[in-house]
Design a protein around this nucleic acid. Structure first.
Lengths: 420, 420
DNA sequence: ACAGTTTCCCGTAAATGC
DNA sequence: TGCATTTACGGGAAACTG
């Protein structure tokens, strides 16, 4: 059997995609060395929708797989498959919830005979969300965040039938943590304020701080994104993905203002000298895009705010964003090619900020019209997995390098006697 | 169960990828209406390497599934899975052949009781190649072509232990057919000559016509591609893919010379006026690339032959090749942007050839440095499946819209009595 | 007809095994 | 160790189903 089995999304635990392997681990909190190789554990999943667990779903607890002498069992290469009943009907009992709000429990069962007494032991994971396609991940992960942000309950699978409201402060902390847990930088107050406006609409700052946020179907779902056909979470996830895969170094340096409204952008750029620019995420693109906006003077000497169409991941595949910034030129009034980008807001010379992320040879480009010559060798922020070396699927959240910012600090399916 | 089950590669029959569904059909050549719903057919695969057939592998013959009143049975949603023996050993008995040269037979078995006599019927597909990853397709398909080009034998699974040689004429026909069967245009003598030089090295035309080509490991394998690390077939397949998905219309029009050596390119372009250009496939890129080469005069009035780095599929994703051609500009001696492309060889004005494939608004581009504005809406030759509406996995090759150009005209697993 | 959900399967990357 | 081959799974598209 194959050995290395990294769980599917290192920084998205508690979401399981059908057909994709996952791993989990149970340990016995009470130390009973004499039970080594005595406890046979079985993994199951609740029956609210019919899933089958494929893979080796029983295992005997032992001391080797633990590092502190207690007993544990690790299940690897498990996968979930939905069991369509008969000729294909959905098995979901509670059809009122969408799949990404449906919570499931992975349970671990065993029985001990101690001093002639049979003791049933049982524990379970935190609620998990089961998805069938990766495109459901953003909403599924949002459910996990919302749950752990608002409850300590270890198994409230009906949470989303009446989801509690959250305060903006709580949501802000979670949003920032989404960045800080996978990059070297969380979100600033300014960035969070922009997101708050997006979520809460036009309110004063004070109102926002007081405001309570409703869950998906109300404030955070698709409706709220002005009929764009995608949820806030999808939009944000694609930006996080863009940051991690294509512009991580620039993000870590703090060069990307990212979340800023066009109004505020105009307000802070207008007083600045021509050539001042900032980097901003696309608000309209579901896919995650980044653009730059700069100040320039038109023929009449009037200040203009300009920007390019956002660059997508596809385009950043063939040229790094730093190189795009360094090489970007427009034709001025006298038909000469010039770069409109001089100072990164507030006043960092662009060479100082981006020079070190460019290949030496590829500064200016002699040709136009998509000459692929200039976009051949790639210089990217490394496409690297940021997960820690130790990992479990239902981890103590400390293992993620950060604690869940909500109230729940996570649990690693620990075995306690549940029934006599 | 799902119904529409298009076989995996409409224009690549006889190659089966493990885990991917395929379909096949048997019919009884002799008309026996009284056997309707009497014959139970079982599909099997030979045991040279252990594959299991997953899906419904027995079926009763009936008249409905046939359109001419004869009996037939169609097996849908079959998949192959390799059975790794014990802890993972290869089950291949003849390890001397690489997987893409290993031939397998799908067999169909049944028995009839006629006038008190038990008759075993059995038939089989043409030899098939089983692959586990799509990257093996080009070589697998080459094996299918080579087999059908050189033998009529219905089941010579050891064909590649001593593969026969082919003549250049045979190979040329097959190569051209690769294009003519999926586009509206095959290969010209000039294009074939270029490919012949690639395959046969430096020989006179007469010698080439006489020459016999050895199979893969000799002339057509990786060694022959000058140590580039990919076979002729991989290179050619990627070009075919590029043509079909990105530049089909231009190919159908005959605007793409494509296969031409750099020497010959220089020879035919040099006498032409500046601005004359032609379109050529990249010779060095495994991925399939296309470039243009043009004539220009340098400062001293000397004729120069120039070309751009080949465009890849990735780049053609965001801008159509016609638009790239129409918009391509370089800076001339006086620092003015001009298009070096004027006449498509021999003397077609580029607007006449490519104008109709461009969006009206996107002719010249004002900005440089990868402005994504100009590459937002896509105009592509449609990504369309060219397969005919009627199809079977082991088809009469006529169903492909063309006959296999080799000696073998194909067979649709027809049932004949094989043993008493 | 439609939208939520699942399935299909390519293509890249990683793992595996000889 | 290297290389041939398989497995894993994201992501886009098609199919499915209430």
């Amino acid at each position: 059997e194959r050995q290395p089995c990294m769980p599917m999304h290192p920084d998205r635990p508690l979401v399981i995609k059908t057909g994709v392997q996952f791993t989990n681990k149970v340990r016995l909190l009470v130390k009973f060395p004499e039970l080594n190789y005595q406890l046979k554990i079985k993994v199951c999943i609740d029956k609210s929708r019919k899933f089958n667990i494929l893979g080796t779903n029983t295992k005997v607890m032992n001391m080797e797989e633990s590092n502190n002498g207690s007993l544990s069992a690790e299940f690897k290469h498990l996968t979930l498959r939905e069991q369509r009943c008969g000729n294909g009907g959905r098995t979901n009992s509670d059809a009122s919830l969408i799949v990404t709000e449906e919570l499931h429990l992975i349970t671990f069962e065993t029985e001990v005979y101690h001093q002639g007494l049979k003791i049933d032991l049982e524990t379970h994971s935190l609620p998990v969300v089961v998805i069938s396609n990766i495109c459901q991940m953003p909403n599924a992960w949002a459910s996990i965040l919302w749950y752990n942000m608002l409850t300590n309950h270890p198994k409230n699978v009906n949470f989303f039938t009446k989801p509690p409201v959250g305060t903006w402060d709580q949501v802000a902390e979670v949003l920032s943590w989404q960045f800080s847990s996978t990059t070297k930088r969380g979100l600033t107050i300014e960035q969070l304020t922009t997101l708050a406006e997006k979520l809460l609409g036009e309110m004063t700052c004070l109102e926002k701080a007081m405001c309570q946020l409703l869950w998906l179907s109300d404030h955070l779902g698709q409706e709220n994104m002005a009929g764009k056909g995608f949820s806030f979470w999808v939009w944000l996830d694609n930006i996080i993905d863009l940051v991690k895969k294509y512009i991580l170094a620039l993000w870590n340096e703090g060069y990307i203002m990212g979340f800023i409204s066009k109004e505020r952008e105009r307000a802070i750029l207008s007083p600045k000298p021509p050539g001042t620019f900032l980097l901003r995420f696309s608000e309209s693109s579901k896919e995650g895009g980044i653009t730059f906006t700069w100040v320039e003077k038109d023929i009449n000497g009037k200040t203009q705010i300009q920007s390019v169409e956002p660059y997508t991941k596809q385009q950043l595949n063939s040229m790094s964003f730093a190189e795009i910034i360094m090489g970007y030129k427009i034709m001025d009034a006298t038909n000469i090619l010039v770069s409109p980008l001089v100072y990164l807001f507030p006043e960092i010379p662009k060479e100082e900020a981006f020079g070190k992320y460019c290949r030496p040879e590829a500064a200016p480009e002699p040709e136009i019209g998509g000459d692929p010559m200039s976009s051949k060798p790639l210089l990217h922020t490394p496409k690297k997995c940021l997960c820690p070396s130790v990992f479990m699927d239902f981890p103590d959240c400390e293992l993620l390098g950060n604690t869940f910012p909500g109230t729940n600090s996570g649990n690693t399916s620990d075995l306690f006697p549940m029934s006599p």
